[in-house]
C-alpha cells in the first residue's frame, strides 16, 4: 500500500521576504484563510505546505497583504 502524501501539487503561494516577519500581517492572514494555509508564529507568517492544495481561490489573503507582496500560483496553468 502506498500512503505517500504530496503537497502543493496544484497551488503554491509566494510571499515576499520583507513582509514575512510582520506579526500583524501573519495574524491577519491566519484569520482570513478558511482552509488554514497560514499560521502566525513568533517569526511571522508560516505557510502550511500540507494545506496549500485546499486553497479555494477566494483571494482574501492577496487582499489582506500589502499590494503585490503575496501571489497565489496556480501550478496547473502553463
Amino acid at each position: 500500500m502506498n500512503t505517500e502524501t504530496l503537497n502543493s501539487v496544484f497551488i503554491d503561494i509566494e510571499l515576499d521576504e520583507p513582509t514575512t516577519p510582520d506579526p500583524e500581517l501573519a495574524k491577519k492572514l491566519e484569520e482570513v484563510c478558511t482552509v488554514g494555509i497560514f499560521k502566525a508564529t513568533e517569526d511571522g507568517t508560516e505557510i502550511v505546505r500540507g494545506q496549500l492544495d485546499e486553497c479555494v481561490l477566494c483571494y482574501l489573503c492577496e487582499q489582506a497583504a500589502p499590494e503585490g507582496t503575496l501571489r497565489i500560483i496556480k501550478k496547473y496553468e502553463n
Binding site: 502506498n2 505517500e4 502524501t5 501539487v9 496544484f10 492544495d53
Partner: peptide, 18 residues
C-alpha cells in the same frame, strides 16, 4: 460541490499512488 476541488482530489489520489 466544486468541480475544480473534486478534480484536484481525484488527480492527487492517482499521483499519490504513483
Amino acid at each position: 460541490t466544486r468541480v475544480d476541488i473534486v478534480a484536484r482530489g481525484v488527480i492527487k489520489a492517482c499521483l499519490e499512488l504513483g
